[in-house]
Amino acid sequence: MAKPPNIFLKQRLVAGQLRAVAERRFDDAKALCETQENARANGVQYLAGIAIEILLKAQLVDRYPTESKLRSHEVTDASRVVWSLIWRSHDLEEMLNHLPQLSAGVRKQGERAGLPYWEWLSGICGSWTIFARYSTLSTTMDTAKEMLDRVRHLKEVLK
């Protein structure tokens, strides 16, 4: 029997790999959503937000290729903020702030589609945090489905 790979190893991914991983996390969220069990709703929102986080990291890798390739011991003061956003942080707001061209592009695509993509993206970045994984509170599957549906659109825009 083949040994399973160690998924806990820290890997240095390129933008395309990050986008593929985001798709997997989205599929994980979708699978939880399809159970229709309210107890899985937090997991749906958590994973849907992770998918957005990874897609923003892919955008950062595209925009800051030099910083993204640095090893931790090579990081300088000047490159530390961006490097940390790519490889350490879960701060979606700060990621957006380092992607100034993204908002206009997302807005334009939303206008073409007749959907408020920019407002959706900003709304998710303003409300989702990594602390969902520690929350003792429970959201509802209706709320989770709504977020998942927005992420379904946004992941195509952010690719």
């Binding site: 407002e119 900003s122 998710i124 303003g126 409300s127 509802t140 977020m147």
Partner: peptide, 8 residues
């Protein structure tokens, strides 16, 4: 009110 509704 859920977070996304507030944002909307």
């Amino acid at each position: 009110v859920p977070g996304l509704r507030r944002q909307d």
